[in-house]
Design a protein around this nucleic acid. Structure first.
Length: 451
RNA sequence: GGUGGCGUAGCCAAGUGGUAAGGCAGAGGUCUGCAACACCUUUACGCGUAGGUUCAAAUCCUAUCGCCACCUCCA
């Protein structure tokens, strides 16, 4: 297998650190709102990767964190007269529901930031002891970026170049360098929104949780300090992943991850969908209109690294195409699996998870009529062929039923007026068997209800 | 300003040196009382533009234009 490693910017042979084991950590959501289609794209990508590793018989552990403490969570919680813990749990459940609806696998581990505070304290203290971090007079703890020789390795920029970009940001006089980032932020506005630490009341810096949880999980299984794969959205490369690298590498002296993978951003009308722009759709919005398989097909028919433009025209086309394929696959067949096709599929997927090419192969091989093989391959990609429903389907079918019943009763009215009671009774009985009660009246139009 | 990415048919999208996959839409046909569905056939002398290297370039090099992202919370 070959993977494009964003650290080296090269396509590399994938060789796990521990024989057949693959440890992959992907950055999960900050849970303070409903998940959007950017999360869907990202989770869909790593689900596809996870499933493919499993198909290739690797012993894979997928870790995806939940960020459940953060300024935005605190802000929302206070607005909603809730608490950060309660609010973040509420949206964690929503996130899980969305993931489940999209048929995205459950990660093997799903650590939450606030469950690792003790480990974070130890992490920070060790960095302070090793002179990589310093405490300010107000109780912040910052990481000394200049002490890390490789800082900028992911972003591919020197400290000077990075400093140029940061010059627009508000000056923070507590920092030794404006590039330094917070490991711990003094914060005590509301007691329930902050935590006690050796450096006073506050909350952890965003980057710290990933580094800490990765260390804790790997160490607990005697897997050293280096992940096989660390992944996340393109927008996390800097500063998030860069800072994770810095913290972890300074602490352990080892690389944080062997391979770095990043998925492309979701665009809406040609510009990036983002919270600050407010131009985002939630997963629930999408599931009301499109089937889960449509969304999966849409996501996987573009290579994971590329930006993807969400638009109704494109999703419509995806739905048309995939529905047709699903219909074709309903034909019963007991042909043996076509190993040649499976090999071609694997060749595509082995090349940095080229799911677009893999899907094209499936369509192309409809001609071979080997339905079991096509279903086998679609399952590897995570399609659930038994679920072709949208969440709005119930409403749709209710509306359709109402219209059909209007029509039936109207036709039957004519039949009764013509005194063809044999036919009209036949209709009423058939409807009754279908669970629909028809009520005829002497003085008004017939009515119906479900029983 | 710095850094990275992208530009392939009406739309989406593979292809990274060997003569343009696939999907949607469109066109023609089979089927049908007529449709719809399904199925069959078909749709880029050209891969942003201009040069160059090569027997051979969408693929490599140079220049150029356009779009996007990151450097601020983000998947």
């Amino acid at each position: 297998m070959k993977i494009f490693n964003n650290l080296t910017r090269q396509l590399e042979d994938f060789i796990p650190i521990h024989s057949n084991r693959v440890n992959i950590y992907t950055c999960g959501p900050t849970v303070y709102d409903h998940s959007h289609i950017g999360h869907a794209r990202s989770c869909m990508t790593w689900d596809m990767v996870y499933r493919y590793f499993k198909h290739k018989k690797y012993q894979v552990t997928w870790i995806r964190n939940i960020t459940n403490i953060d300024d935005k969570i605190v802000k929302r919680a206070l607005e909603a007269n809730s608490s950060p813990d309660k609010l973040s749990r509420e949206f964690t459940y929503e996130f899980w529901a969305d993931m489940h609806a999209l048929n995205i696998s459950w990660p093997d581990l799903e650590p939450r930031a606030t469950d690792y505070l003790i480990e974070m304290f130890a992490f920070i203290q060790e960095l302070i002891d090793k002179n990589f971090a310093y405490v300010t007079k107000n109780g912040d703890v910052y990481f000394r970026v200049h002490k890390h020789v490789n800082y900028g390795q992911l972003k591919r920029q020197s400290l000077e170049q990075l400093a140029e970009g940061i010059s627009r940001v508000d000056e923070n006089e507590l920092k030794e360098s404006q590039l330094d980032f917070a490991l711990w932020k003094a914060f005590a506005r509301e007691p329930e929104t902050s935590f006690n630490s050796p450096w006073g009341i506050g909350r952890p810096g965003w980057h710290l949780e990933c580094s800490t949880m990765i260390k804790a999980i790997l160490n607990s299984q005697n897997l050293g300090d280096t992940l096989d794969i660390h992944a996340g959205g393109d927008d996390l490369i800097f500063p998030h992943h860069e800072n994770e690298c810095a913290q972890s590498e300074c602490l352990s002296g080892k690389a944080l991850a062997k391979y770095w993978m990043h998925n492309g951003m979701v665009m809406v009308n040609g510009s990036k969908m983002s919270k600050s722009e407010g131009n985002f759709f939630t997963i629930k919005d999408l599931l009301a209109i499109y089937k889960p398989n449509t969304i999966r097909y849409f996501c996987l028919s573009t290579h994971y690294k590329k930006q993807i433009n969400f638009g109704h025209e494109a999703l419509e086309a995806a739905e048309q195409g995939f529905d047709k394929l699903v219909k074709f696959l309903e034909t019963p067949s007991d042909e043996p699996l076509n190993q040649e096709l499976i090999q071609a599929f694997e060749n595509a997927m082995d090349n940095d998870f080229n799911s677009a090419q893999a899907l094209a192969l499936i369509f192309e091989n409809k001609d071979n009529k080997n339905i079991p093989t096509l279903i086998f391959l679609l399952k590897i990609l995570g399609f659930d062929l038994n679920n072709q429903e949208t969440t709005a389907n119930n409403e749709k079918s209710e509306a359709a039923l109402a219209q059909v019943m209007d029509l039936v009763l109207d036709l039957r009215k004519t039949i009764r007026e013509n005194k063809d009671f044999v036919t009209s009774d036949k209709i009423r009985e058939a409807l009754s068997k279908a669970g629909i009660n028809v009520k005829d009246y002497r003085d008004k139009a017939s009515e119906w209800e479900l029983n």
